[in-house]
Design a binder for these strands. Structure first.
Lengths: 143, 143
DNA sequence: TTTATCGTAACAATGTCAGTTACGATATGG
DNA sequence: CCATATCGTAACTGACATTGTTACGATAAA
């Protein structure tokens, strides 16, 4: 994996967990399926848990569970949980430049924020259930 | 500068060049204004030139000029020129996983592509003239 | 008590990117 | 025709982000 892997991994993991809402899914299983490492999974899912999207249980037969139905988890929720900022970024304003420079800087940053907002609005319209969508009626998921 | 600096720098530079459509702007001037380095500017603007958004002239009194009016350059043009892919990314599909995994992978990638497309559509609705917008009627731009 | 699992810290490996230096190519101006 | 200004580009460095990995403690089930 390389870029945007956190978002991608999160979607992967969430969709995966939705298959088996009965059993808790272990980091190791999820990591296997997503082609990565259990620690990486825990790192990413930890953020989703902090945002209330899922829960984890320690100890024997522990693992991860969805905290809500997939249709009530939007990609915007996931995006926010991960703290991603694909477009905008907080850049401290330079104080030693002239007024025109500062105004232009501010304007560019404002535009970037507006685009970020549009992106989030778009993400609100897709849920994990939508992601699962086409793959939902595939046969068994055993390996 | 750190993240998304290419897009940010490009917007900055283009807006800047729009103030003085008479004279060619040198990389050094643009770099000064954007708080970066002439070579970095040339790297970024070189991509915009390759996309036909602006032209450059070598030699004495050379520099950069807009190839079109600012109202006819959209942020989607700039984004495409830079070859940015903020959301989606080409990930080679793993062949050794089971059918469900492959289907889920494909689905996640498809979702990411759709989001990327939404982003580009949004970018099509803003032009460099819009970016300049509020700063346009500010006083002189001399330093 | 043993085992499975998360939580987390620490570190390495990698990759991206801006910054920088250097130098050749090219065009203007005198 | 020469000096100068400018782009074009390669090469390298340093900073930073990210993933992968190992290790180990905490916790809970079997």
């Amino acid at each position: 994996m390389k870029r945007n892997s956190r978002l991608s991994l999160a979607l992967h993991a969430l969709s995966h967990m939705a298959y088996d809402t009965g059993d808790a899914q272990t980091s190791a299983d999820i990591a296997d399926h997503a082609g990565t490492n259990p620690v990486v999974v825990r790192r990413v899912l930890g953020k989703l848990r902090a945002a209330g999207l899922l829960t984890s249980e320690r100890g024997h037969s522990g693992g991860w569970r969805l905290a809500r139905e997939t249709k009530h988890i939007t990609l915007a929720d996931v995006y926010a949980a991960l703290g991603e900022r694909l477009v905008a970024s907080e850049q401290p304003m330079e104080t030693d430049t002239c007024a025109v420079e500062r105004a232009l800087d501010a304007r560019v940053q404002q535009i970037m924020r507006e685009i970020e907002e549009s992106l989030v609005e778009r993400l609100e319209h897709t849920t994990i259930a939508d992601v699962q969508g086409a793959t939902r009626q595939l046969p068994s998921h055993a390996h």
